[in-house]
């Protein structure tokens, strides 16, 4: 039994990996506003009428905010879905929820709806509606599953994803050439933004999600054992699940309507944090949020490093960087 006991002292090699990961992520994130099609010198940022000032405050800083808080939402939703359904492969993507949000946003584009009502972008509402629709569809369909294991739920989610992307293809053929182009560009995922409207709303939603998860951490700790266990200890699991799904669909729906799909963050960040911090699941909410934000903003920096005609879609970078690192963590094991 001795060898199975948790080592109270982390091996120094592992500590090094942790420190290196964190400092690389922080460094890349912090340098994000200075790098890109035009590299910016810090000294010129403070000259009010310089082009650097304009680029820094109107393009780069909002973009850093958008990428950081998008990363927070993606990582936290991944963590939440894995906890709620007790399956390591659950994310808003594998369950078809962001597929629904993409379809909702696509519909808004085809209908030509891109106005802002009472400070809320209507495409965001369509994204939220799409996400919520797929959550409700998923829950409704799961009632008819005979073997209610979480793997059947995952299969349902994958089926829904395929259905939604097929519906998006139909939408393509209905749309005009310009709309098709807009949808195509949107489905590649992008963090480019202008001004603070989008980044502030994503920041607000990510903090809302973080606050709700943190307040509900005791209930989520019980749910992470199993559903019956949580109910035996007095958790109204159905109400809790519905509340959390509603809040996360709102965050994911609006996020996807702005950035398009950005895969992989929700899957790998919670696992990465579990490997780096071997603690009980409910104690990882804040590290997961932090790593998610840093990871996505670091990936965004990398996507703008090569001086190409256009930025590399962010989803490609997250997969390219995250994939090998994740495999390394799995093999290295802990």
């Amino acid at each position: 039994m001795g060898s199975r006991l948790p080592s109270t002292k982390m091996s120094s090699g592992w500590l090094m990996i942790k420190a290196a990961t964190l400092s690389i992520l922080v460094l890349l994130s912090l340098s994000s506003p200075f790098l890109g099609a035009m590299d910016i010198d810090l000294s010129k940022v403070w000259l009010f009428d310089s082009i650097e000032h304009k680029i820094f405050f109107e393009l780069r800083l909002p973009r850093l905010m958008l990428s950081f808080f998008s990363g927070v939402i993606l990582a936290l939703s991944g963590w939440l879905f894995q906890t709620l359904f007790r399956n390591a492969l659950m994310t808003p993507f594998t369950l078809g929820i962001s597929g629904g949000a993409i379809l909702g946003t696509g519909i808004a584009v085809v209908l030509g709806i891109n106005s802002i009502v009472a400070g809320v972008a209507l495409t965001g509402l369509f994204g939220f509606a799409g996400a919520l629709f797929s959550v409700i569809l998923l829950l409704w369909l799961s009632r008819y599953i005979v073997h209610r294991g979480s793997s059947s739920l995952l299969l349902l989610g994958i089926a829904l994803s395929f259905f939604f992307s097929a519906a998006l293809m139909v939408l393509f053929s209905l749309a005009s050439a310009m709309q098709s182009h807009a949808i195509l560009h949107y489905t590649m995922g992008s963090l480019s933004t202008m001004g603070y409207g989008e980044s502030l709303s994503i920041a607000f939603l990510s903090l809302l999600l973080l606050a709700v998860l943190y307040i509900k951490r005791f209930e989520l700790a019980l749910l992470a054992i199993n559903d019956d266990h949580a109910r035996l200890k007095g958790v109204d699991t159905r109400r809790l699940t519905y509340t959390l799904l509603l809040v996360s669909s709102l965050a994911i729906g609006v996020l996807v309507s702005i950035t398009g799909p950005i895969g992989f963050v929700g899957l790998i960040i919670p696992h990465m944090v579990r490997k780096l911090y071997p603690k009980a699941n409910h104690q990882l909410i804040i590290p997961t949020a932090l790593f998610g934000g840093l990871f996505l903003s670091a990936c965004d920096t990398l996507s703008r490093l090569p001086q190409l005609q256009s930025d590399i879609p962010i989803g490609i970078v997250t997969a390219f960087i995250g994939g090998p690192f994740f495999i390394y963590l799995i093999i290295k094991g802990k």
Partner: peptide, 20 residues
């Protein structure tokens, strides 16, 4: 005991009995 989260400590686990 069947648990998705295996990293909960004995103390944390027993404490959950006080949830109600």
């Amino acid at each position: 005991l069947e648990s998705f989260d295996g990293l909960i400590t004995v103390h944390e686990f027993v404490l959950m009995g006080r949830y109600p």
